[in-house]
Protein backbone atom coordinates (compact mmCIF):
# COMPACT_ATOMS: atom_id res chain seq x y z
CA UNK A 1 0.00 0.00 0.00
CA UNK A 2 1.27 3.43 -0.75
CA UNK A 3 0.26 6.92 0.16
CA UNK A 4 -1.30 8.67 -2.75
CA UNK A 5 -3.40 11.75 -2.62
CA UNK A 6 -5.93 13.41 -4.75
CA UNK A 7 -4.90 17.05 -4.42
CA UNK A 8 -8.44 18.31 -4.92
CA UNK A 9 -9.69 16.79 -1.66
CA UNK A 10 -8.52 17.64 1.85
CA UNK A 11 -5.48 15.51 2.66
CA UNK A 12 -6.78 15.12 6.18
CA UNK A 13 -9.87 13.22 4.94
CA UNK A 14 -7.75 11.01 2.72
CA UNK A 15 -5.39 10.22 5.60
CA UNK A 16 -8.32 9.17 7.79
CA UNK A 17 -9.53 6.85 5.01
CA UNK A 18 -6.13 5.34 4.33
CA UNK A 19 -5.30 4.80 8.02
CA UNK A 20 -8.72 3.21 8.65
CA UNK A 21 -8.19 0.95 5.64
CA UNK A 22 -4.80 -0.10 6.97
CA UNK A 23 -6.34 -0.95 10.33
CA UNK A 24 -9.29 -2.98 9.07
CA UNK A 25 -7.13 -4.94 6.64
CA UNK A 26 -4.63 -5.78 9.36
CA UNK A 27 -1.75 -3.86 7.82
CA UNK A 28 -1.67 -2.28 11.27
CA UNK A 29 -2.97 -5.24 13.27
CA UNK A 30 -5.45 -5.06 16.18
CA UNK A 31 -3.77 -3.82 19.35
CA UNK A 32 -0.54 -2.98 17.53
CA UNK A 33 1.45 0.16 18.04
CA UNK A 34 1.43 2.74 15.28
CA UNK A 35 4.53 4.57 14.15
CA UNK A 36 4.80 8.10 15.56
CA UNK A 37 3.05 11.04 13.91
CA UNK A 38 6.39 12.29 12.69
CA UNK A 39 7.35 8.94 11.16
CA UNK A 40 3.99 8.51 9.48
CA UNK A 41 4.04 12.09 8.20
CA UNK A 42 7.50 11.55 6.73
CA UNK A 43 6.43 8.26 5.15
CA UNK A 44 3.30 9.77 3.62
CA UNK A 45 5.10 13.05 2.88
CA UNK A 46 2.46 15.18 4.49
CA UNK A 47 2.44 17.91 7.06
CA UNK A 48 2.75 16.49 10.61
CA UNK A 49 -0.14 18.69 11.78
CA UNK A 50 -2.40 17.15 9.16
CA UNK A 51 -1.37 13.64 10.23
CA UNK A 52 -1.96 14.59 13.85
CA UNK A 53 -5.46 15.78 12.97
CA UNK A 54 -6.26 12.54 11.15
CA UNK A 55 -5.11 10.51 14.15
CA UNK A 56 -7.29 12.60 16.46
CA UNK A 57 -10.30 11.87 14.26
CA UNK A 58 -9.60 8.12 14.43
CA UNK A 59 -9.19 8.40 18.18
CA UNK A 60 -12.58 10.07 18.33
CA UNK A 61 -14.07 7.09 16.52
CA UNK A 62 -12.43 4.72 18.95
CA UNK A 63 -10.24 3.05 16.33
CA UNK A 64 -7.08 4.37 17.95
CA UNK A 65 -6.17 4.95 21.56
CA UNK A 66 -3.31 6.94 22.99
CA UNK A 67 -1.29 5.79 25.93
CA UNK A 68 0.39 8.71 27.54
CA UNK A 69 3.89 7.36 27.51
CA UNK A 70 4.03 4.58 24.98
CA UNK A 71 2.30 5.94 21.92
CA UNK A 72 -0.77 5.18 19.83
CA UNK A 73 -2.33 1.77 19.45
CA UNK A 74 -4.89 0.27 17.13
CA UNK A 75 -7.99 -0.78 19.04
CA UNK A 76 -8.19 -4.46 19.99
CA UNK A 77 -12.00 -4.31 19.81
CA UNK A 78 -12.54 -6.61 16.81
CA UNK A 79 -16.22 -5.74 16.56
CA UNK A 80 -15.34 -2.08 16.13
CA UNK A 81 -12.87 -2.96 13.36
CA UNK A 82 -15.45 -5.17 11.68
CA UNK A 83 -18.02 -2.36 11.79
CA UNK A 84 -15.52 0.05 10.26
CA UNK A 85 -14.77 -2.48 7.54
CA UNK A 86 -18.47 -2.77 6.74
CA UNK A 87 -18.81 1.00 6.72
CA UNK A 88 -15.95 1.22 4.19
CA UNK A 89 -17.51 -1.58 2.14
CA UNK A 90 -20.84 0.24 2.11
CA UNK A 91 -19.16 3.31 0.61
CA UNK A 92 -17.86 1.15 -2.25
CA UNK A 93 -21.25 -0.48 -2.75
CA UNK A 94 -22.97 2.92 -2.85
CA UNK A 95 -20.44 4.18 -5.39
CA UNK A 96 -20.93 1.06 -7.48
CA UNK A 97 -24.72 1.35 -7.42
CA UNK A 98 -24.71 5.04 -8.29
CA UNK A 99 -22.36 4.38 -11.24
CA UNK A 100 -24.62 1.59 -12.40
CA UNK A 101 -27.66 3.87 -12.06
CA UNK A 102 -25.87 6.37 -14.34
CA UNK A 103 -25.58 3.54 -16.87
CA UNK A 104 -29.32 2.90 -16.52
CA UNK A 105 -29.30 -0.24 -14.36
CA UNK A 106 -31.66 -0.69 -11.45
CA UNK A 107 -30.21 -1.93 -8.18
CA UNK A 108 -31.56 -5.44 -8.88
CA UNK A 109 -30.03 -5.53 -12.37
CA UNK A 110 -26.73 -4.23 -11.02
CA UNK A 111 -26.61 -6.90 -8.32
CA UNK A 112 -27.53 -9.57 -10.85
CA UNK A 113 -24.63 -8.49 -13.04
CA UNK A 114 -22.28 -8.51 -10.08
CA UNK A 115 -23.46 -12.01 -9.13
CA UNK A 116 -22.92 -13.22 -12.74
CA UNK A 117 -19.40 -11.91 -12.59
CA UNK A 118 -18.92 -13.94 -9.43
CA UNK A 119 -20.12 -17.08 -11.22
CA UNK A 120 -17.96 -16.41 -14.27
CA UNK A 121 -14.90 -16.25 -12.12
CA UNK A 122 -15.44 -19.69 -10.71
Amino acid sequence: MSWQFDSERPIYTQLVEELALRMVTGCYGPGSRLPSVRELAAEARVNPNTMQRAMAELEGRGLLRTERTSGRFVTDDLELLENEKRRLARVHVDNFLSRMAELGFTTEQALELAADKGVDNQ
Partner: peptide, 15 residues
Protein backbone atom coordinates in the same frame (compact mmCIF):
# COMPACT_ATOMS: atom_id res chain seq x y z
CA UNK B 1 -5.44 26.36 6.11
CA UNK B 2 -4.61 24.23 3.10
CA UNK B 3 -7.23 21.56 3.73
CA UNK B 4 -9.87 24.22 4.41
CA UNK B 5 -9.08 25.93 1.11
CA UNK B 6 -9.28 22.58 -0.70
CA UNK B 7 -12.54 21.82 0.99
CA UNK B 8 -14.12 25.19 0.17
CA UNK B 9 -12.96 25.32 -3.43
CA UNK B 10 -12.88 21.61 -4.29
CA UNK B 11 -9.61 22.44 -6.04
CA UNK B 12 -5.97 21.71 -5.50
CA UNK B 13 -3.75 24.61 -4.42
CA UNK B 14 -2.10 24.40 -7.79
CA UNK B 15 -5.45 24.92 -9.54
Amino acid sequence: GVDELREQSGKSLDA
